[in-house]
């Protein structure tokens, strides 16, 4: 009985296995990544968010949602990557000047330079890194961003799928007065206060899970019942045989 069901399941299994392997390969190549955006150390932001970047060759599709940002102020948002960077979000120890905040220079060793500007319209190259009129202004402190078919270099595409790229949303309000101001100038653009460019929330793009999960060992599975059905059915068939024998014997006696 056992042998029969084993043979049957091996035959069935090999038929099931082929498309199974094929699916695994296809999904590994499609390159969906997600970042959980969390407050950057020392910068006093309470916000959070998620970003999803799907890589197709050298084209990427990006969706991003965030909240808890300074409302109605432009928030520059980028994908950062540097071969020499740590591929991380900055930590308190990155505050090189010891001024108690993390600015863009402090963030560099952690996440590297801008490789994609997540603008709402127009150019998406690093050149648009501070195109404040084309970034989301976070009405109500919230960003709900979606942009498809952004062209990137193959190196950037590879960095994203390998978990080395970092999404950063900039713009903080250190003094809680509801706007970008203060005497400290941005180290990227001296015409802007540092509040406008300091990193607010940040997350590393990591591969999203692909495919299902193997979460069972079969101890309660249906095939056991099928085996039971086959065994039971076999016994009933045998009963027909012995029953017929009994009937014949009974007939002979008469």
């Amino acid at each position: 009985m056992r042998t029969t069901s084993k043979i049957a399941s091996v035959a069935l299994g090999s038929a099931v296995l082929l498309p199974f392997l094929g699916a695994g390969v296809a999904q590994a190549a499609d390159g969906s990544t997600m970042a959980t955006l969390r407050p950057v150390a020392l910068n006093g932001v309470k916000g959070s968010g998620t970003a999803m970047v799907t890589v197709n060759g050298t084209r990427i599709d990006v969706t991003m949602a965030a909240n808890g940002l300074l409302p109605d102020a432009p928030h520059a948002a980028h994908i950062h990557f540097g071969a020499d960077a740590r591929h991380e979000c900055p930590v308190a120890g990155d505050d090189a000047k010891g001024d108690g905040t993390i600015n863009t220079t402090d963030g560099g060793p952690a996440y590297g330079p801008i490789v994609v500007s997540l603008t709402k319209t127009g150019d998406t190259s690093p050149k648009s890194g501070l195109a404040v009129d084309r970034f989301d202004t976070a009405p109500g402190g919230k960003i709900n961003y979606e942009r498809g078919s952004i062209n990137v270099s193959s190196g950037v595409a590879q960095a994203i799928t390998e978990g080395k790229a970092v999404v950063v949303v900039h713009g903080v309000d250190h003094n809680n007065d509801g706007k970008y101001d203060g005497t400290t100038k941005s180290d990227l653009d001296p015409s802007l206060p540092t509040e406008a460019t300091d990193p607010a929330i940040c997350g590393v793009l990591n591969a999203a899970p692909a495919g299902g999960m193997d979460t069972g060992a079969g101890g309660t599975s249906t095939p056991n019942n099928e085996g039971m059905l086959l065994l039971g059915g076999g016994l009933l068939m045998a009963a027909v045989g012995t029953g017929a024998f009994t009937a014949r014997k009974a007939r002979n006696r008469v």
Partner: peptide, 20 residues
Amino acid sequence: AAAVTVVLLVVGGFLVAKSF
């Protein structure tokens, strides 16, 4: 043979019922 038939019917029937 009759006794065997009864046993087979009971056990077989039980297994079929349980599987269903």
